[in-house]
């Protein structure tokens, strides 16, 4: 059981970056998440894809961070996509109505296709 989040960034073509989210996402993850977002945006991509396959745990503070990330992305005219969410966290995205602003997909291929990167 990891106590902190780690986030690696991968480039997926010219138009999208993938952030691999691992561990626990809580309010304490702000620096890690925003640093990952900055790295993901360096090449001027239009889409940020969040990979939640390695997510262990997320509380309401973590959801709040995703809302803040969404605002930052929209400000840069970027779109957010997500994949790898368990059924449990999919329901939480619906409960918090994040699913209305973040495109949710079953796998990386579908998310990148929606992001126009494939």
């Amino acid at each position: 059981m990891s106590q902190t989040a780690t986030m690696d960034v991968r480039q997926a073509g010219r138009s999208a970056s993938i952030v691999d989210v691992k561990g626990d996402v809580t309010a304490n993850s702000e620096d890690v998440l925003m640093d990952a977002y900055n790295r993901a945006s360096e090449s001027g991509v239009r889409s940020i894809v969040l990979n939640f396959e390695g997510l262990d745990y997320m509380n309401s503070g973590g959801i709040g961070l995703l809302v803040t990330l969404l605002v930052r992305a929209n400000r840069q005219r970027q779109q957010l996509f997500a994949y790898g969410l368990t059924d449990h966290y999919r329901q939480i995205f619906e409960l918090t109505r994040l699913d209305e602003a973040v495109g949710i997909y079953d796998n990386e291929r579908d998310a990148l296709a929606a992001a126009g990167a494939r």
């Binding site: 939640f52 396959e53 390695g54 997510l55 262990d56 745990y57 790898g84 368990t86 059924d87 449990h88 079953d106």
Partner: peptide
Amino acid sequence: NQEATPEA
């Protein structure tokens, strides 16, 4: 993780 392990 996609299948929502009982632990998760």
